[in-house]
Nucleic acid binder design. Sequence first.
DNA 1: GAGAGTGTTGTAAC
DNA 2: GGTTACAACACTCT
Length: 282
Amino acid sequence: MPELPEVETIRNQLNKVLRGKIIKEIEVLREKSFSGDPTAMRGWKIQSIERKSKILEVLFENQPDIVIVHLKMTGQLIYVNGEKRILGGHPSPDWVNQLPSKHTRVIWNFDDGTKLFFNDMRVFGWMKIINFKEYEKYTRKTVPDITEKGFTTKYLFDILNRSKKPIKLVLLDQDKIGGLGNIYVNDALYLAKIRPDRKSDSLGLGEVDSLHAAVVTVIKRGIKYGGASASNYVQVSGLGGTYQDHFLVYKKEGEKCKRCGGVIKKIKLGGRGTFYCSDCQK
DNA sequence: GAGAGTGTTGTAAC
DNA sequence: GGTTACAACACTCT
C-alpha cells in the first residue's frame, strides 16, 4: 500500500534511528523476500536512507553496494530497540515487542542489539543488494517523482497528451510519474475536479495545471499526516499514520461530496477501486 | 464456506 | 506499440 508519502515517512524515521548502525547479521526467513548474499552485509555501517519514488535505498559507508527496498502492498519496516517508545512519540503497540511474527520475512540485527524487522504479509515486497551500476534499472532514475523538480506542469502535460488511456491509469504508471498509488491518485483527481475516466489526452493546459497542483498538494498532505493507514501500513514505530482521517474521496462511496453535495461514486478502472464525485468532477 | 476485494507492479496476451 | 488481464500471496469482508 505504501505510496510516496508512506515511504517518505518511513525514510525520515529510519534516518533518525539507523544512521551509524553496524550490521551484525541479516536473517532471511523467506528466500523470496531478499535477493543477494546476506552474509556479505556483516560489518556494513549505515550511512543514510534515501528514496526514489516508492523505493527506499540504504547506503553504507565505504561500500559501493546499496540495499533497495520495495514494500509493495503490505510491507512494513519496524525498528525495535527495547524501549517502549521510539522517536519521542506515543508508546509503540505491544505487538512490536513480540516480533518476529508469522509475517516477518527478514530481520536486520545490529551490533548494539537493536533490530529492524521487514514484515510483508503478501510477500510481494523485496529487499535487494545491488551494485550502484544497477541502480538506474531498479529505480527508474530518469522518471521524475512528484517531489522532484522535473515534475512540472509541462512534463505532466506532455505525458498525458501521449496517451488515450483513462487519466487515472496514466497517473499511476510508475514509468511516467513516480510516487502515486491508488489512494492519492483518487484524492488528487477530486481536488483538481477531473473525472478519473477522462481520456488522458483530453485535458487542456489549464486543467493539467490544476492537476499538477493537486497532485503536489495531496502528496504533501500525505507526508504531513505521516501516511495513510487504511490497512497494513505502519510507521517505523509500529504506529499508524493519520491521512486516512483526511481522505477526500478514497473509500467514501455513498457519502456526500463536501464541495458540492453530490454523492461519491465507486467504479473500477484498470481493475482497481476508483472513487469520484460525479457532479463536480468533469 | 465460497467468492470477491485489497494500497503494487512485472509479464503475458490481445 | 498501446493497452488490458492476470499473477504473485494472504488476509478481510460480503
